[in-house]
Computed example of a mutant assay.
Amino acid sequence: NIALEIRNNAISASTRDPRFSPIINIELPKLIYSVDILGDVTPATYEELDPQKYGVIVKHHEKRGLLLPRLDGVDTVSEQIEIAARKAGIYDDEDIELFKFEVVRHY
C-alpha cells in the first residue's frame, strides 16, 4: 500500500535518519514536503548517468547507497556516485555496480 509506505518512510526520515537530529514540533510548519516515486531500476554505466535526470544506486556486495536525481549541489556524475557510495560505506578502492532510475516527484 503506497499510503502506508509513504507514512512509514516519512516517520523514519524525520525521526531515525542518523545524519540529522529528529524533527521537532516547532519545525513542522516550516517544512516543505515532497514524495518521490522511483521508477524501474536498471543497470547503468558511468556514461549513461545524468544527475539531473537519473537517480543512482551504487552497490558493492551487500552494501548499497541510493541518491535521488536533481539534488542541489550535486552537479556531476562523479559527485552523485561519491555521495551514494559514502552513504553505503563503500570505499574508493572497492569495485562497484551502478544502477539508474527515474523519479516522479510530487509536492
Rank of each mutant, 00 (worst) to 15 (best):
A84T: 00
A84C: 09
V41F: 07
E47S: 15
K53V: 13
P43G: 00
F101A: 03
I90C: 06
K100L: 12
I81Q: 02
N25V: 10
L31F: 07
N8I: 01
I26C: 10
S14Y: 01
N9D: 14
L49C: 13
P18M: 05
I11M: 13
I26A: 15
I96M: 04
T15S: 11
T76W: 05
G55T: 04
Q80M: 09
V58G: 01
I2L: 15
I32N: 11
E102P: 11
L66N: 10
L28R: 00
P43A: 11
A44F: 10
A88W: 00
K59S: 10
E97D: 10
E48W: 08
A44W: 09
E79D: 00
E79A: 10
R105I: 00
K63F: 01
A88D: 01
R64N: 07
K100Q: 12
L67E: 03
I23Y: 03
I57G: 08
S14V: 04
R19A: 12
G55A: 02
T76C: 02
T15P: 04
Y107E: 07
I11E: 03
K30D: 15
D17N: 15
P22C: 01
D75K: 13
I6C: 09
T15W: 05
E82K: 12
A44Y: 04
F99H: 07
L98A: 09
E47K: 15
Y91L: 14
Q80K: 01
A84R: 03
L71F: 03
D36Q: 12
L31E: 06
L71T: 06
R7D: 06
D36C: 09
D93F: 12
L49E: 08
R105V: 00
K100E: 13
D50M: 10
P69W: 02
I24Y: 05
T76Y: 07
I81W: 05
V74H: 08
I2D: 15
A88S: 06
S14Q: 11
V41H: 07
I96R: 01
G39I: 04
E94H: 00
S78K: 15
E97I: 03
P29A: 00
A44P: 03
G39V: 05
G73A: 07
H61P: 02
D50K: 08
R64Q: 12
R19S: 12
L66G: 05
R16V: 07
R64L: 10
A85W: 01
D17K: 04
K59W: 00
F99K: 07
P18C: 00
N8S: 15
E102C: 08
N1W: 02
P43T: 01
G73M: 04
S21A: 13
I57R: 02
T76F: 03
V74N: 02
H106S: 08
R86G: 15
A10K: 00
Q52L: 11
I32E: 11
S14H: 02
D95N: 10
H106G: 05
K30Y: 14
L38H: 09
I6A: 11
G65S: 13
V103Q: 00
I96A: 06
Y91F: 14
V74K: 10
K59L: 07
T76R: 02
K53C: 10
T76M: 08
H60G: 07
A85D: 06
